[in-house]
Design a protein around this nucleic acid. Structure first.
Length: 599
DNA sequence: ATAGGGTTAG
């Protein structure tokens, strides 16, 4: 075959020669294509190459076999161009390629991955019409589609139907997909039952099955069960954990602050010659960032790079979020710029972190500018983005703008979630719009949104702070009537409301009720009650409360302490209390110059 | 000579 240099040498010598040369090249190219479609398909890395190859294949006479087309479709599906893959499938049909069950399974998978499981089922109908017997691959793809669309009941129905009507022999993938669906809905009891059922059949659970369940148990905070299953997998079934198993374990342990065990797992992993991948490093980066240890996170990233792993969008997003949580917006922007320079396009998560950072710093203009930049890049804000912006706007008292944004959220088809609801209620209460918050609350009525103790805490606090302790009392009774369990915060905001109105008797009664209700007071409870007592110059229980605080190992905060000092300075409280107070003051507060003559 | 399932971020 003529090579490229030879071709160049001929240029300009003779146009006829050039023409024949190029056609010669073309035909040899085609010839090599014909014999080597499979090897060309394996080299496909982008959609364009795939489409070109398809075009050339479809012009061949005779047409390449269906196997070649299936290979190409697989390649396109692997690079996640599902709708292009479907287009090619349609073209295959109109070209008259005799599509097989392989082709159908790929096409159905594409529909399902596009959240168009309905079309997937339509293609199942086509199978019957074309006398293609649907196999387990096809049913697995459909089952996965239903799970993906959260249609868990239909997934269960399909699963049972497959078995009952013997539509196909379910295999380990069928079971694992069903298990994934059950896990997604937090139904760990049924999940484990299905795992046991599986063990009775001849398709045994494999590493995929176990990884799915172990990860789900961690997500549901069932750490001990997760480890039990992990041991069962390794010891009883002899299945070796892989990098994904370890990633789940390490991620779960980090989330619960169980650092020692997490690093033990890292060591164990290395001992077994399983090297950490980008995902593992990302878990560690994120864990450090969440702990406020951004420098450590940067160290992890350096190790990651030393080991030849390339940080990706997730890595940078975690780091940016870490800096934003610390309010270090300059660093956050630096990382943002450097990731853009590396050709990584920021996504909605990146922007939401930045918005959050600006809002935390009460820089609402900065947040707005980011919001506009984000939408300008064609990124659609999601519920989290809107929640962040709403919180920021309420925080700086821009209730009208918040309202406008809430309406926009609605217009964009974003359904407010429990966080949105809490943010709006809290925002209204903190901006002296308790009446509005209450009307919204009553409008929502007896729904799941209102069966949330946090919602009651917000409203009780809002009512109390706005001089509506009677409303607070009604709300408190209401939540008890509903069968909700008040938590420490509920008691704290209620006690704080009573204290503010000088109803110290009520405050004390509720305080005493906490212990017997199995919800012991925390340091905040004591601070609130003490401040209430001091402000009303009601000193009877003060010493006893301080003593209790000491017994429980609680400490005083700066503002309560300051109040005590004022009362002592005014001669309202005896100086003998200083000794007890000094025991309750954290070291950093002892530096206060006003306290130098304490001991 | 071709098809499928598991882990991460706001």
């Amino acid at each position: 075959m003529m090579n490229r240099t030879a071709f160049i040498k001929f240029r300009g010598t003779n146009s006829f020669l050039l023409h024949s040369l190029s056609s010669f090249q073309f035909s040899t190219h085609k010839a090599s294509l014909h014999s080597n479609v499979s090897s060309l398909i394996h080299k496909i890395t982008n959609l364009n190459d795939a489409l070109k190859l398809f075009d050339e294949m479809s012009h061949r006479q005779p047409l390449p076999s269906v196997v070649k087309f299936n290979q190409l479709l697989t390649a396109v599906t692997k690079i996640k161009h599902f709708s292009s893959s479907l287009d090619l499938f349609k073209q295959m049909c109109s070209l008259g390629v005799p599509v097989s069950n392989y082709t159908m399974s790929i096409a159905i998978k594409c529909c399902c991955q596009l959240h168009r499981t309905k079309d997937g089922f339509a293609l199942l109908g086509c199978c019957f019409r074309r006398a293609i017997a649907p196999d387990v691959y096809i049913f697995n793809a459909l089952l996965d589609g239903l799970v993906l669309e959260d249609r868990i009941l239909e997934a269960e129905m399909l699963f049972k139907k497959l078995i009952k009507q013997k539509l196909c022999e379910p295999d380990v993938v069928t079971y694992s997909t069903m298990i994934k669906g059950l896990c997604k809905f937090g139904n760990n009891v049924t999940t484990l039952a299905l795992l046991r059922l599986m063990e009775q059949t001849n398709c045994k659970p494999d590493i995929f099955t176990y990884n799915t369940i172990i990860d789900s148990l961690f997500k549901d905070k069932m750490i001990d069960d997760a480890f039990k299953l992990f041991k069962e997998m390794v010891s009883d079934k002899g299945i070796l954990p892989n990098v994904i198993t370890y990633n789940s374990l390490i991620c779960g342990l980090c989330k619960f602050g169980r650092w020692d065990e997490a690093s033990k797992m890292l060591k164990q992993m290395e001992d077994e010659n399983i090297s950490p991948d980008v995902h593992t490093f990302n878990v560690l980066v994120d864990a450090f960032c969440k702990e406020g240890k951004v420098e450590e996170a940067e160290v992890v990233i350096n190790i990651m790079i030393e080991r030849g792993k390339v940080p990706n969008l997730v890595t940078y997003n975690s780091l940016i979020d870490g800096y934003c949580l610390q309010g270090e917006m300059i660093k956050a922007r630096e990382i943002f710029d450097s990731m853009t320079l590396r050709g990584l396009a920021p996504n909605v998560v990146t922007y939401s972190s930045l918005l959050n950072g600006y809002c935390k710093n009460r820089n609402i203009e900065g947040a707005m500018q980011m919001f506009r930049q984000m939408t300008g890049q064609g990124l659609k804000p999601n519920v989290v983005t809107y929640n962040t912006m709403l919180q920021g706007l309420f925080q700086v008292g821009r209730c009208v703008a918040a309202r406008r944004l809430f309406n926009e959220m609605h217009a964009q088809g974003r359904i407010p979630d429990r966080c949105t609801y809490r943010i709006v209620l809290d925002g209204l209460c903190n901006n002296h719009l308790v009446e509005d918050a209450l009307s919204l609350f009553y409008l929502v009525g007896n729904s799941k949104l209102n069966s949330d103790i946090a919602v009651y805490n917000i409203l009780i606090d809002g009512a109390g702070k706005n001089g509506k302790v009677d409303v607070a009392r009604i709300l408190f009774q209401g939540l008890i009537d509903k069968g909700l369990q008040p938590d420490v915060r509920t008691y704290n905001v209620m006690i704080s409301g009573f204290c503010r109105e000088g109803q110290l008797g009520e405050a004390k009664l509720l305080f005493l009720k906490m212990e017997e209700s199995g919800c012991p007071p925390d340091d905040v409870t004591y601070r609130v009650l003490l401040q209430g007592y001091l402000k009303k110059r009601h000193y009877d229980d003060v010493e006893m409360l301080l003593q209790e605080m000491d017994d429980r190992g609680y400490s005083l905060d700066a503002s309560t302490l300051s109040l005590f000092i004022d009362h002592i300075a005014a001669g309202l409280l005896d100086r003998s209390m200083l000794k007890l107070l000094s025991k309750l003051v954290p070291k950093e507060l002892l530096d206060d110059p006003r306290l130098c003559d304490w001991e």
